[in-house]
Amino acid sequence: MNVFRLLGDISHLLAIIILLLKIWKTRSCAGISGRSQVLFAVVYTARYLDLFTSYISAYNSIMKLVFLAASYGTIYLMFIKFKASYDHNHDTFRIEFLILPCVLLSLLINHEFSPLEILWTFSIYLESVAILPQLFMVSKTGEAESITSHYLFALGSYRALYILNWIYRYYAESHYDVIAIVAGIVQTVLYCDFFYLYITKGIYGQ
């Protein structure tokens, strides 16, 4: 563990908490892409299956459980409890165009052709594009509530901090994982446009 990864995990946790609070407090999921949230739940489910097979640390196990619970909790709030406020008309990104390529790519490029490894690789590829429906929805509606933009800023920052973690690990532990690094860079690059808007204008209400 290093400070970059710890800050990244905290930023990730913060993003998920901000989202849950926004939906719970405003009792509305307006402006939030349910499709992205479904993709995140698939990402965590595919990646954290090793929760039952390999114990790494209490921190690791607890965070995995928190991320899984929070992502399914968000889906429950969006599609069941506050379903009436879900904005179907603007949440239209075709997620099958994201899932299928990630499945194919994870079968072609992976560290080891075993079920758990393929699922992990699939989750890494899918996570890098999982935010696209949300960014697409924000661009379509032309704006985002301030709380939603804070959510996106924290979520985008998490993987950017992980890139610093990978740089650190390369020099400090001579460890690197090409698949995670390339996907993490793609994921962070996708936020660049949003980061620019967030920092220059605070995109809410524009």
Partner: peptide
């Protein structure tokens, strides 16, 4: 140690 899957990362 190079190019191994980062198993300890979330």
């Amino acid at each position: 140690r190079l190019l191994q899957r980062s198993k300890d990362e979330l």
